[in-house]
Amino acid sequence: MEEQTDVLQEQLTGVAEALGWWGVPLAILAGAIRASTPFLFVALGECLTERSGRINLGLEGGLVMGALAGFAFSHITGNPWAGVLMAALVGSLMGLIHGVLCSLPRVNDIAVGIAIMLFGVGLAFYLGKPFIQESAPRLPAVPLGFWSSSGAVQSALSVNALFVIGVILAPLMVLFFRSTRWGLVVRMVGDNEEAARAAGYSPMRVRILATMVGSAMAGIGGAFLSLYYPGGWSEGLSSGQGLMAVALVIFARWHPVYCMLAALLFGAAGAIGPALQSVGVSWGYYLFNAAPYVLTLVIMIIACSRFRTLRGAPGELSVAR
């Protein structure tokens, strides 16, 4: 008799706690929220830089340096937001190097970007040794899932403030490009250098600034990695999010809201593999884990067409030719 009630109890807890197949869409939603934030910030930052007519492939370097700086400062000051601020500052310094070097004649922005990536990652690994064993205060999350009794739903809907900021930032950036003077200047510099110069703006200065701001945002994306998800400072923290996000900007055709959607899509698709395995689908986990890349490629093949190549591309951008 006692045994029977035990079994019943067990089944009940099983039903209440395990979501079964419903866990898959939930995990994908949660993945979109959790894993997309770094992509979101890097992509929005790169969007700004590329709109000014320059491509910065080195955002991975800014991201990793930002991750370290954010973690280190949160650890030292005890305030994670101080860490985020520092991450932005360090990121903008990386952007400054890129911006200045690329303003020299005949210097190729893509090559400098790759060198910045190498330099940033190397420097972060070098300086980061003392922080691997440390812990730092994390960024807080907003518990939007408070209404649910399910731990899974609560966890999926605990949304980090940076994610919210990023999502708000995307439409604001559209407004910035469309209706502010500075936005118009960035676009003009990106579309036609001569016209901008004729209008009395220095393309060089605008581009350096755009690169610095873009790289600062990559730094913030890095701080999200080290201060929230997955958290902690280690040398394998970034698995190429910075590089991939740069590609997402081209995918999103230089439109901030599309950048946001692309980042969400990418984060969501990344959750497919682990979520399927957690309900027992284990065949081909390597292939499922490649889902974000396959999905992006397929969408591009469908959405692109030979005759309207890269609509929305800034005229001065080297990759868009």
């Binding site: 998800y229 593999g273 957690s278």
Partner: peptide
């Protein structure tokens, strides 16, 4: 790291 965190969350959800 990110996939390990996703896996941990996926298991906890189940």
């Amino acid at each position: 790291p990110v996939r390990e965190a996703e896996a941990t969350n996926g298991l906890a959800d189940q």
